[in-house]
């Protein structure tokens, strides 16, 4: 599915409307296709580039800069584990280990059942609730290693 859907186009257009030019919407446009497709494959990148009148090369330069623009496949649910200092002090290493164990997949990989991809992420801004992690839009914390598998069960 290379071409942009009408929903994607509408969302990108809405962003362009509040900016002085279409190019400035590049990041938002990439986020939009990611929202619709989980990740930005080469075709999607090409479609966005064409829509914004950028070259693929130019758009890739932007896409490859940001942590949360995924240029590789991710599972249905993305688990972001805070990797920053407060959570580290509070024992996030054990949580990360528990997560890898429960998923049976390393960070960055998609689980066999296509459900999850876990990624270490810089500070989630929940240092008062560390160790913290986010699954999709939900923030969880403090998370104990023992809680991890139960937590994952809530995301079929």
């Amino acid at each position: 599915m290379a071409a942009l859907s009408s929903a994607e186009r509408a969302e990108i257009d809405a962003e362009i409307a509040i900016l002085p030019d279409a190019r400035s919407a590049s990041i938002e446009a990439l986020k939009t296709v990611q929202r619709h497709r989980r990740w930005i494959d080469d075709d999607a990148l090409g479609a966005v580039a064409e829509y914004l009148d950028l070259s693929k090369h130019e758009l890739e330069a932007i896409a490859s800069f940001y942590n949360l623009l995924f240029r590789k496949p991710v599972g249905r649910h993305v688990v972001l584990v805070c990797d920053s200092v407060s959570c580290w002090i509070l024992g996030n290493e054990a949580v990360k280990q528990a997560l890898e164990d429960s998923l049976g997949a390393a960070f960055g990989e998609v689980t066999r059942d296509d459900r999850f991809t876990a990624l270490p992420m810089q500070c989630l801004g929940a240092c008062d609730r560390g160790p913290a992690l986010m699954i999709d839009e939900d923030l969880h914390g403090p998370v104990q290693p023992a809680d991890v598998s139960e937590l994952l069960r809530r995301y079929p």
Partner: peptide, 10 residues
């Protein structure tokens, strides 16, 4: 607010 340890603006 991506400074590690910061969550006041939130």
């Amino acid at each position: 607010e991506m400074e590690p340890g910061a969550f006041k603006d939130r």
